[in-house]
């Protein structure tokens, strides 16, 4: 039997809500968000349930969920919500908390983002070839989308060229400083 303990002291749920600028009691659990979410069918907890968990102070379950990584940030939920509850912001902050404890319930998504940002740090711009290649390698999906490679090569959609920013050192320093700032949040 789960115990509903209302922990009113400073808790992770309150922090996530405060960082997102959300008053959790605004949500009356109507479910319009879940119903409008394009990714809801594959989520382990529904968008509405994400808010419910925070309302009950059960932030750890949210942070451990696959749902926060499957969100596509399309913002259909908040733009239809009768009470303007900023669910994308809640999810984003839940992700930051997950990252803080090195947790990512959908590792492929985490890896994709990591590789993307590594590229940007190194080159200043995203490199699609490196991104796809490194992602396939690190996620273990070695042959993903490989069937499309001949077409892309033939038509010059992808190639060996690396596109960089002249001031890439500046971009690297900038990102490093930003990372530090993010860690402290």
């Amino acid at each position: 039997m789960a115990q509903l303990q209302f922990d009113n002291s400073a808790s992770l749920a309150e922090k996530i809500a405060a960082d997102a600028g959300v008053t959790l009691s605004d949500c009356y659990q109507c479910g319009k968000c879940s119903a409008g979410c394009p990714m809801s069918a594959s989520m382990d907890i529904q968008p509405r349930q994400a808010v419910r968990l925070l309302q009950l102070g059960m932030a750890d379950e949210l942070v451990r969920s696959r749902m926060i990584w499957l969100c596509a940030s399309c913002h259909m939920c908040v733009d239809r919500c009768p009470n303007d509850v900023d669910l994308p912001a809640l999810i984003e902050n839940a992700r930051y908390e997950a990252q803080r404890i090195k947790l990512c319930a959908v590792p492929e998504v985490g890896k994709f983002n990591d590789i993307f940002m590594e590229n940007v740090k190194n080159f200043g711009k995203s490199q699609e070839v490196i991104l796809e290649g490194a992602y396939n390698l690190l996620s273990g999906n070695l042959l993903q989308d490989m069937g499309s490679v001949p077409h892309m090569l033939r038509h010059g959609i992808v190639g060996p060229e690396i596109r960089t920013v002249r001031e890439r050192e500046h971009v690297r320093r900038m990102l490093t400083a930003a990372e530090k700032e993010d860690e402290g949040c």
Partner: peptide, 24 residues
Amino acid sequence: DWNCCGASSAHAKGKWQALALPAR
């Protein structure tokens, strides 16, 4: 000399990373 905007990956990683990239 524009740099990457960060797309969806930057704001998944961190708030300030996601703002810094487009700000430049």
